[in-house]
Nucleic acid binder design. Structure first.
Lengths: 203, 203
DNA sequence: ATTATATTGGAACGATCGTTCCGGTTTAAT
DNA sequence: ATTAAACCGGAACGATCGTTCCAATATAAT
């Protein structure tokens, strides 16, 4: 006996994600959210609780979109392939609009660390999932021999995750066509390097 | 015939920087600024104009602190030394408090890109100064032979700047003692690598 | 057609936002 | 001691913040 909703919850959540993604949590007002979500004030509060709860759901939705990424990493048979797949899916295959938006998780980690640490940690933990997948991949590659024993899987994963985070910062600055490619290709050369003349590093 | 100020402008600006650095531009209220700056509302507005103008001055102050960094880069004679100096000054020599604060420029680039692009661009341009210094250094090294001709100075600089940006994101997550060191040491191996088996990269 | 229920738009809440303004206070120079 | 200039505290501005509430509306089931 109920009236049908005039809005689509999934669609509304997606639109909220887009706005939070662009403007950040603090700078995005509820009124702006209502506008892009095409939802009434009352419906938003009854459906999502409040602005903060909505953001938590948005983070969850955003992370669910990275499943494709994690799967690709898990399936890779050599380390360079894993990274290339990552880059391919996360950067090349993105439309400019999405690419230039950067990463909601990175944005959130930075924005809310000293404002709402709980939210910041949620974002950080989601990103850690990606790092774990990379560690697993590299460990698997080490076992199968496609990763040179000189490389530590964990350190290697932390390196690439950090590079990706940096690239998400750069992406938001709307870099030239080849900028990110140069970065990732340079990063990939760590696989082909020898370390002989690197023993006396002390820093 | 004037009364002496009860506040120290430089000190006040520094304190404002600290707060903006931690909380970001949007989430920091004028009242919070007055509290940490130990300045009256009237004095703040007559001295700095408004919140936005104050932030512009804060960005300028922040950038002036990187002069030491840029000098160190400029003086370096080989590329690895430049990067190590950068890491040493910008990360190792920092107190935990400062290190975990991340980078105000990176934070600002991300936070304000779609909120106040003008401010975001100021931050981005400051960071570009660092990148230029790195390019110059690498070009100099290429001339003097301490940089292998296989490396392109600009691409190499873009790589390390991106790594640094990523490391600033990571730093704000309060990483373990050795995390950042592992990242930078891995990044440095791009200098020692050969590229022979890397010809068929197509991505 | 009636009933029941969920959705809706909009008014209203107190709190806080950035900013302006003014009267009182302080102090350096006359 | 008087004057002039600058600082200071705080009230007040309108605007916006996130949230709550309610009456009106719309629709699925009876």
């Amino acid at each position: 006996m109920a009236r049908t909703k005039a809005y689509d919850k999934d669609k509304a959540l997606e639109d909220a994600m887009t706005l939070f993604w662009a403007q950040g949590y603090t700078a995005t007002s509820v009124q702006q959210l209502l506008d892009v979500m095409s939802i009434s004030r009352s419906s938003m509060y009854s459906e999502f609780g409040n602005k903060r709860d909505l953001f938590v759901e948005v983070l969850s939705l955003y992370f669910s979109l990275t499943n494709e990424l994690i799967d690709a990493i898990s399936r890779a048979n050599d380390p360079a392939e894993a990274i290339r797949k990552f880059y391919e899916i996360g950067f090349v295959q993105q439309s400019d609009t999405l690419l230039y938006r950067g990463c909601l998780l990175v944005n959130t980690i930075l924005e809310l660390r000293d404002v709402d640490n709980e939210l910041s940690l949620i974002a950080a933990q989601y990103f850690d999932e990606v790092e774990k997948a990379l560690v697993n991949c590299f460990q698997k590659c080490a076992s199968s021999g496609t990763l040179h024993p000189r490389h530590d899987p964990e350190i290697l994963a932390s390196f690439f995750v950090t590079v990706i985070k940096g690239m998400r910062v750069v992406a938001r600055q709307i870099p030239s066509e080849d900028y990110l490619r140069g970065v990732i290709e340079t990063a990939l050369t760590v696989f082909s390097g020898s370390r002989e003349n690197n023993d006396e590093q002390v820093v």
